[in-house]
Design a protein around this nucleic acid. Sequence first.
DNA 1: AGGTGTGAATTATTTCACAGCG
DNA 2: CGCTGTGAAATAATTCACACCT
Lengths: 200, 200
Amino acid sequence: MYLRYLEDLDGRGQHTASSDELAQLCGTTPAQVRKDLSFFGSFGKRGLGYPVHELSGRLREILGLEREWKVIIVGAGKIGAALANYGGFRQRGFRVAGVYDNSPEKIGHAWGDAIVRDISLLEEDLQGEESIIAVLAIPADDAQAVVDRIVAAGVRAILNFAPTQIIVPAHVSLKSVNMAIELEGLSFALTNGLGGTSAA
Amino acid sequence: MYLRYLEDLDGRGQHTASSDELAQLCGTTPAQVRKDLSFFGSFGKRGLGYPVHELSGRLREILGLEREWKVIIVGAGKIGAALANYGGFRQRGFRVAGVYDNSPEKIGHAWGDAIVRDISLLEEDLQGEESIIAVLAIPADDAQAVVDRIVAAGVRAILNFAPTQIIVPAHVSLKSVNMAIELEGLSFALTNGLGGTSAA
DNA sequence: AGGTGTGAATTATTTCACAGCG
DNA sequence: CGCTGTGAAATAATTCACACCT
């Protein structure tokens, strides 16, 4: 999140930013900003703030964003379609390298730039690939089986949109986004008069 | 999350579930399950576990899911399209009540069941509506302005897919989903050999 | 003056561990 | 006996506050 706003500021030609300023942009506190950043090093200059451009670069390194990551979309349904065509990936340096499905009706059909490939080709397609992130956009029932398969094929990072809990070996990173749960959280907040922001 | 798995179990005819079992399903610990649930009441029976069906019902009440919520999609782009047609909303009791945009090219066009409406109609459309959740699927630049507008129109819950920080008054609930940040988190994990699961 | 970096204090969350009920 | 509910203990995260640099 810091990176996003630092790049914004950099684009506007701002050379320096205080923890106060970053906190406002990110919706947090100055102390939080300083603690977070200090975990990775001492980037700031006392009396001045943080050097916007330089810190952007350092954060990109820390996040591993200096290389290009390939994203494969697994599941050629509605959500998969939206994700495959979503410009935001490319914009942030993630290249959609393929779309996979197991339904014969979908395999072979063109789909934006890509052609939907049989998921059983995944293993050979990924031979030697290191920088792969799989985005899962499949029904909950199939999710664990497909995950087992793509993990076996060597994928070590998964962004899961299937509305179910998924188990991965310790060496695999998994993040899950569950829209229904987000909505139900909002329902709870409204019902109980709560209000407030959360990143989810 | 508990509700999701309880409904699953209920559907399979299981009458009772221990904190251990729920913890496994949800990827957490038994102690966590018990603490979480005990916050809302004493639902379990010692020696037996939790009554699956009854607890489902109680959680639905607590979450405010006994009424039907209306969801409006704001932004008729790629993401908005996917969301509007996504079956998962209706399946969980959220009804897509309208799609709004400010682009003349999109307004009036049919779009799944709905017709894209001019965002300036929002205020009158929402007259007297209480149970509205807005899903934001618009570019980052427009996001804050549109939010101000829909908040002025009376919306009190927002699920934001725009990749930017948004500020809302204290009485409004906001949750944000930022796919680029999720991917960058995975990049970080891969780069630094971390692994592990996180709900996001 | 202005603003970071960081120990110390505070507050929040998770885990432990066990009394007590069915 | 099995399993919840819950105080107490252990961890983790956030905030404070201030020494110190520019």
